[in-house]
Design a protein around this nucleic acid. Structure first.
Lengths: 208, 208
DNA sequence: TTTCCTCTACTGGAAAACCAGTAATTTCAT
DNA sequence: ATGAAATTACTGGTTTTCCAGTAGAGGAAA
């Protein structure tokens, strides 16, 4: 039976060497190429036509998220396994949105790597136990855009415009403390704890 | 010569009354309808088929920006003049992006209103002097997405994920002071002064 | 080897946001 | 007229971000 052709992408050669060492005993896996940058990844994938790519999210010349999107667009049958130390949910969800078939952590065992490669090659998804646990945590943000009052929409627009609470207060002829209350209400309605998430979600819901 | 058919949209009836009083002496303008909400605005525009709509940005039931987009999509020949007290550049640019033909402030004189209506009806753009001044101010943000280092991209992703500097430091195994330096460098590269603008621009540049 | 960039981290501080609670007034719908 | 929601604003506080400057170490390119 033909072994699964795998390309490894990580900017640390030592990690690439380690990965190859871990995968070598597996006779159903064949490491056909490695790359240490996004540019190299594109060339290596084009040259070797792998079935699976283990892709570090954090590359020197481009975001792994972007690389994932481009690889899965230009090679629709390619399966991308994200490889990272980061246990951050927004990275996971973004990688999945960009076409990744799985997500493994860099401390994965050889057995886990083998299972991940086999499963994604078979068309299934694969997540480390830690990542599954992360994804199963209660969703802090509402699935749908919250219903905002007119004043909240207005304040949200000004927050996105980069104004401070004091500047908004001046523009709207109210107290800065009033603006602070509106901000707090916005954070609560979006189920977030800071402005970064607020604006990111508002952009996603096209409220800006 | 047929007068320009105008619909007025503002939630304050007193302001609608005032606008009508200002526009009445103008024999080349005909106020064919008024509305005090977004829902009413759609119905009134459908019923009266105006040439120009004076549209308050801040409506009780929907953002004026959204109303502008929908009106200009469903009535391609309709000209929308934004009407507001807000002198906030991001609102202006967003209204223009959503198809508005002009932007006037609520303290405009009858002459200015007349000129605005005439100009947009003739297919030109119109901005109050104050708004032109606002638009002419040097652009604080770069026109193109800045070139980020890998660490900056990583930190940007975590900021958008809602993490605090302390949380990012723990996740990346560095000092919180290091994260603070990365944030500062991100703000500088994007030409902004706070996280809200940073994340909004990052979303616009599709860096998230 | 040298230079430049990236990443790291600090001092010292101010500004801003976030938090929890409380409450009066205004507005709007019934 | 009544009740609920929205808007307003405050106390008292902590946390977080933003600001300006400085600087060393490591890596990469010339």
């Amino acid at each position: 039976m033909t072994p699964i052709r795998v390309v490894l992408v990580d900017d640390h050669r030592m990690l690439l060497a380690g990965l190859q060492t871990l995968l070598q005993p597996l006779d159903f896996v064949s490491v056909v190429g490695t790359a240490t940058s996004a540019a190299e990844a594109y060339a290596t994938v084009a040259a070797h036509q792998p079935d699976v790519v283990l892709l570090d999210i954090n590359l020197p010349d481009q975001s792994g998220v972007d690389v994932c999107r481009q690889l899965t667009e230009t090679h629709p049958n390619l399966k991308v396994l994200a490889l990272t130390t980061l246990q951050e949910k927004s990275y996971v969800t973004r990688m999945m949105q960009e076409g990744a078939a799985g997500y493994v952590l860099k401390n994965a065992s050889p057995e886990e790597l083998a299972e991940a490669i086999t499963r994604v090659q078979a068309g299934k998804k694969y997540f480390s136990d830690e990542i599954q646990e992360l994804l199963l945590q209660p969703e802090p943000t509402p699935a749908v855009r919250p219903l905002l009052t007119r004043r909240e929409r207005e304040v949200l627009g000004l927050i996105a415009g980069g104004l401070t609470s004091q500047e908004m207060a001046q523009q709207l002829f109210v107290s800065a403390l009033t603006i602070e209350t509106h901000r707090r209400n916005l954070l609560t309605k979006f189920g977030v704890h800071n402005t970064a998430m607020l604006i990111r979600l508002a952009a996603e819901y096209q409220l800006l």
